[in-house]
Computed example of a mutant assay.
Amino acid sequence: MSSVTTEFADGVAVFTIDRPDARNAVNQEVATELAAAVDELERRDDISIAILTGAGGTFCAGMDLKAFTRGELPFVPGRGFGGLTESPPTKPLIAAVEGWALAGGCELALSADLIVAAEDAKFGLPEVKRGLVAAAGGLLRLPKILPYQLASEIALTGEPVTAPRLHQFGVVNTITASGGALDGARELAARIAANGPLAVKATKQVLGMAVRYTDPDLFTAQSVPLDPVFASADAQEGALAFAEKRAPNWTGR
């Protein structure tokens, strides 16, 4: 059974992470299948925009930490976490968020061009609570779209922030009733898909260039301070503590 389901119709693609029992946590299979879905999106001239969502009332809980402790990484070389955070599609992407968008799940949402979220949805970068770092673009993108102090609070405390608060700052485009995020995203996507596909694609490219929203040089540069963290004993301890439902014992090594 596929971990990512796809739908292509009326100029719009819908990608659904389908691991509800794991809160749609991303493992290697999800990353590979999302990358393949993006490749199909890029090939198809009849599709000009995509929606990314999660099954079962949760967008994505981030990296599958149990898989991480087994040495499995949810990345695709050159594409990043989930197969798209470092190299999102050249066509616009909308994140339709229900429930939680945490850690890498939040970073998947931030890699989208637009976000539609249910009123009770929550976003967060809790990596620091696990001895890890938000390395999939969250630390690069948040300061571009939020005041620096608020971005720092979210990233350094690891505490969640609600969709309505992010809507106040323009991070979330549209707030819907609970359960209505995908329908809201479809409505927004239809408005964009009605426009000239070449113009839409070029417009996204220039917008991203203007703010360096997807800059491979930045992803390369951040590896200098971040790689030692992922190789540390604390990183393994944080993931194990989460899996074992206990408080971590940090050593600073």
Rank of each mutant, 00 (worst) to 15 (best):
S2F: 10
S2C: 11
T6Q: 15
T6D: 09
T6M: 14
I17G: 00
D18P: 12
R19I: 11
D21L: 14
A25P: 02
V26L: 08
A31H: 06
E33D: 05
E33P: 07
L34G: 01
L34Q: 07
A35G: 11
V38M: 04
K66W: 02
A67Q: 07
F68T: 08
G71S: 09
F75P: 05
R79F: 12
T85S: 04
T85N: 12
E86C: 14
P92S: 07
I94E: 01
A95F: 01
V97N: 02
V97E: 07
G99R: 08
W100V: 13
A101V: 06
L102F: 09
A103Y: 02
A109W: 00
L110C: 01
S111T: 11
A112E: 04
A117Q: 06
D120A: 14
A121P: 14
A121N: 08
F123A: 03
F123L: 07
G124Q: 03
L125F: 08
E127K: 11
K129H: 09
A134W: 05
A135L: 12
A135I: 07
G137I: 10
L139A: 15
L140P: 04
P143D: 04
Y148I: 10
L156H: 14
T157W: 03
T162F: 09
P164F: 02
Q168N: 05
Q168L: 13
F169L: 07
F169H: 14
F169I: 02
V172K: 00
A177D: 09
S178I: 09
G179W: 09
D183L: 11
D183P: 04
A194Q: 06
G196C: 15
P197E: 04
L198K: 15
L198F: 13
K201V: 05
T203E: 08
K204Q: 09
K204L: 11
V206N: 00
V206T: 14
V206S: 00
G208H: 14
G208Q: 12
G208P: 07
M209C: 09
V211F: 13
R212H: 12
D217M: 12
D217W: 12
Q222T: 12
S223V: 13
D227Q: 12
P228E: 06
S232L: 09
E237G: 00
A243P: 06
E244L: 04
K245P: 08
W250I: 03
